[in-house]
Design a protein around this nucleic acid. Structure first.
Lengths: 275, 275
DNA sequence: CAAAATACGTAACATAAGATACAGCGCTCC
DNA sequence: GGAGCGCTGTATCTTATGTTACGTATTTTG
């Protein structure tokens, strides 16, 4: 049963020609506002011509554009009256394999942050912001992208941020540059990687401060870490989820940025002027 | 300070003549829907004439009726984008600078999935699973790690999955290997990258099916995409958040894995035996 | 109470919006 | 490779929407 226009669209979007699909995608992207504007505005927003928009609404079963708009308005009216029942995409009972996944992920995040105090986060952020040496980031097979993501941001707001990539021998050799003023951020979740453990141990021996992102069962690297962030990773899927760790990473990026606001702002301006 | 039109109205309603006051009351009664309709509908709803409506909006300081409607729509857009932060009280017990960030991120995810039906996700998963050619993944400055993350998983459950990295010239040359049986997954959020757009266009010209991960404002690449995933990215931070897109990516990885269960299981066993 | 000023609605107008016809193009399928 | 079909955009037309002018009603004020 189809109750909302958004459902109707996602139901038929597969059977639409390219132009109308673009209209549909644009509408869904910020639903339902685009549909309340004029045909001309809608068409330019979607990058198609006006007739395509009209054909699009015709395909949805509406006689004309105003009728389509009225339907959207009615839907909006119903939504605004009962904010609780804002179910655009109703939690498919039992059926869809999507909702459980999303729910589990959201739970993981809440749970992860519940075990993570503001003070801890602030401490870690301070470690990353106030370090007097360099920052190195590295990850495991699936978590290395997280290290990259964090490095991409940190490298903009402060100097000497390096992501360690490639073969083990390559980054192992970089140990020689690391000392007690430096910080090493490691991402390691099950199945924990031997190579990372070896690397962490040696770095620790050299006095490097280690910040570890791991799962709730704690990578053995925790033994050498100054700070440990344990994220929930269990989801109803064949794979573990790194989403919670990702959000922690983003939070830390934000916190470090705030701490470096003064120095960082200038740096960002300088970077802009380089383009 | 006056931030919403509703406030503006209740501020000046005392100094209005009877007819315009009725217009004001009618608008407030089911705000802001009446204001989005035509002048004629508004006037009959309020039981006054059209000119009275126009005088009413003029008194509020708008030059003309469309300008008034645009203002209402903008306001509505702002509301719809951050549902919880407006409707719920933001006084979460955490208090620190962390909670707002987490809350916004969770909102983004809910909102992103609200605009994403199970069917859409299933379609995209099918595109990724049933493709008869190769799968390429690429991302922008900050989103490339997401492409890597997805590639790392997909490459395990099916052959011919490639992440496009390095300089533009390198992956541009790989266009030569791409055809209509292939799938290209692109991550592109603001600020959208010219190079990706060029690449997407050429790939599209060659018949490659494009799956686009973007933000709610839609990268121009949406024009060439077969499937578009619009994630929310706004958070109280100096940076945009890719967390919602990350979760969508994980969800898709899970869905593709499920679809390839039979074929994938054998492949995974084979991989294990290689170690 | 009378006169002026203000408010309101009717009706005509101009403009911008939605709808349609048609031609070009690309795509698919023989 | 060619014929047919379907999709898309340009240009044109029509509708209806917002706007304005003006006359009447109502209220206010001296």
């Amino acid at each position: 049963m189809i109750s909302s226009i958004a459902e109707l669209i996602s139901d038929r979007i597969g059977a639409m020609p390219a132009g109308e699909r673009r209209a549909a995608q644009t509408l869904i992207a910020n639903y339902p506002l685009t549909g309340l504007k004029t045909v001309a505005e809608f068409s330019t927003a979607a990058g198609v011509s006006s007739p395509t928009i009209l054909r699009f609404v015709a395909r949805l079963g509406f006689q004309n554009y105003p009728e389509f708009q009225s339907a959207l308005q009615d839907e909006l009216a119903a939504q605004l009256q009962s904010p609780a029942s804002r179910t655009l995409n109703p939690a498919s009972p039992g059926g869809g394999a999507v909702s459980p996944m999303l729910e589990a992920t959201l739970d993981n995040m809440r749970e992860t942050f519940r075990h993570l105090s503001d003070k801890q986060l602030a401490d870690i952020a301070a470690t990353l912001a106030e370090r007097r040496g360099k920052t190195f980031l590295i990850g495991g097979r699936f978590t290395d992208p997280l290290a990259r993501y964090m490095a991409a941001h940190l490298a903009i707001i402060q100097p000497d941020v390096y992501h360690l990539a490639g073969q083990e021998s390559i980054w192992r050799d970089r140990l020689i540059d690391m000392g007690k003023r430096d910080v090493l951020v490691i991402f390691d979740i099950r199945r924990y990687q031997e190579s990372l453990l070896r690397f962490a141990e040696k770095a620790h021996d050299r006095g490097v401060q280690i910040v570890l992102f791991t799962d709730q069962w704690l990578s053995p690297i925790a033994r050498f870490a100054r700070h440990v962030i344990a994220g929930r990773t269990a989801v109803p899927s064949a794979w573990d989820s790194s989403a919670a760790l990702f959000v922690v990473a983003e939070t830390l990026i934000g916190a470090v940025t705030r701490q470096l606001e003064a120095a960082g702002a200038k740096r960002i301006r300088d970077l802009e002027s380089l383009r």
